[in-house]
Simulated scan of single mutants.
Amino acid sequence: MKHLIVYAHPRPRSFNRAIVDTVAESKRKEGHEVVVRDLYEIGFQPALGSTEMLGGVEEDVSLEQSYVSWADHVTFIYPLWWMGMPAVLKGYVDRVFSYGFAHKYVDGVQTGLLKGKTAALIHTQNKSQEEYEASGMEQSMRLTIDKGIFEYCGFEVTRHFVFDSILSSTAEERKNWFAMRSH
Rank of each mutant, 00 (worst) to 15 (best):
N16Y: 02
V6R: 09
T170C: 06
V34Q: 04
G154E: 06
I19M: 13
R142H: 12
I122G: 06
E64L: 15
A134T: 11
R159S: 13
I5F: 00
V57N: 07
A18D: 13
F178I: 05
A47Q: 11
A120L: 09
Q45F: 06
R95P: 14
L4G: 03
M141I: 15
L80D: 07
A120V: 09
Q139D: 09
D60A: 04
I149A: 05
L39G: 04
S165P: 05
H3F: 04
E138L: 15
L63V: 14
L113Y: 04
R95Q: 05
E52A: 04
R37G: 02
Y67A: 00
V68I: 12
V93L: 04
A8E: 02
G154M: 05
E64A: 15
D94W: 01
E41G: 15
D72A: 08
G49Y: 08
L114P: 06
L121C: 12
L113I: 04
R17M: 07
S140G: 10
S168Y: 03
T124S: 12
D38N: 02
A119M: 14
H160W: 07
G116A: 13
H9G: 05
S165N: 12
M83K: 09
W81Y: 13
A134F: 06
L39E: 01
A18F: 03
M141S: 12
G56P: 07
S140K: 08
H73K: 11
A47V: 13
I42H: 06
F178Q: 02
A47C: 10
I42F: 04
E52P: 01
K2I: 00
D21L: 04
H9I: 00
G43R: 02
G100Y: 05
